[in-house]
């Protein structure tokens, strides 16, 4: 069968089934058979040939690093930045350990308990405690379904970046898919800003390195000497100028307490 007729077949399939129905079908079929290149969720990253010709070679190399579509999704949600040789210059969700966070036991319970999970249907959160291999396989396959709308027969993880972003946006916009996307997004930010398995995200936004990451101990305590020998001061040690005309004598007592 030629590539053209394959594309026509796909078009026919898309016309015949809604996306929700496709998800159901994928689930019923056991997923991997339909997922193009999403791979074994437990497999290690393997460089793969890439059909989207025209993308720069560094982008190809970056995409080849993705273990599967879920990993690629994480890199879209909080992208790593790379230099021309593909070396990470600014970490993203993957580098911060988002995959490990996603695999935490009782993840949904913990996220809800901390008020970190956005509004999601109880039917989703109550029936899901963690992000296990079966769910990961389902999401992998579903990302390929979303990818088809961008580039037929192209797995999600091999889409061009702009296409990936459009596919992810489509996922967030779909009420059926949104809960899963929100869960993965939350896991990404917890990894990036929560110092669960790494402090690289916090360092990227201006935090000092942890003194002992294994113990979860952040460098703190004043005064602390910087690498250049200067002292880190958390204050300006300076009084602000007075505000003309703002008389607080009727508001505060002599001790500075509210009257």
């Amino acid at each position: 069968m030629s590539a053209v007729s394959k594309r026509n077949d796909q078009t026919t399939a898309r016309a015949a089934f809604s996306r929700r129905e496709i998800i159901k079908i994928i689930g019923a079929l056991g997923l991997p058979t339909l997922s193009l290149g999403c791979g074994d969720p437990n497999a290690q990253a393997q460089p793969q040939p890439r059909p989207d010709a025209g993308a720069p070679p560094d982008a190809q190399a970056a995409r080849a690093r993705y273990r599967d579509n879920v990993a690629a999704l994480m890199d879209v949600l909080i992208p790593a930045e790379r230099d021309a040789r593909g070396a990470v210059t600014s970490p993203g969700a993957l580098e911060a350990g988002a995959e490990q966070v996603l695999e935490l036991a009782n993840l949904v319970h913990l996220l809800r308990g901390q008020g970190l999970l956005p509004p999601l249907p109880a039917s989703f959160t109550d029936g899901l405690d963690g992000f296990d291999g079966a769910l990961r396989a389902l999401v992998n396959a579903d990302l390929d379904v979303l990818a088809f709308a961008q580039a037929p027969l192209t797995p999600f993880r091999r889409l061009a970046r702009e296409q990936m972003e459009r596919a992810v946006q489509a996922g967030f916009d779909d009420p059926l898919r949104r809960p899963v996307f929100e869960l993965v997004r939350t896991a990404c930010f917890v990894a990036y800003l929560g110092a669960v398995t790494s402090d690289v995200g916090l360092r990227a936004i201006g935090y000092d390195p942890f003194e002992d990451f294994a113990g979860g101990v952040y460098v703190s305590g004043y005064p602390r000497r910087r690498a250049d020998g200067s002292m880190d001061d958390y204050t300006y040690n300076r009084a602000p100028a007075a505000t003309p005309g703002d008389d607080l004598s009727g508001v505060l007592d002599a001790d500075g307490e509210l009257r």
């Binding site: 901390q114 110092a195 669960v196 942890f210 979860g216």
Partner: peptide
Amino acid sequence: NAQGNRFRHTYDLRYL
């Protein structure tokens, strides 16, 4: 730790 306690500095969900 360097601050003289055993308290951790992390937003690890299991800890929080």
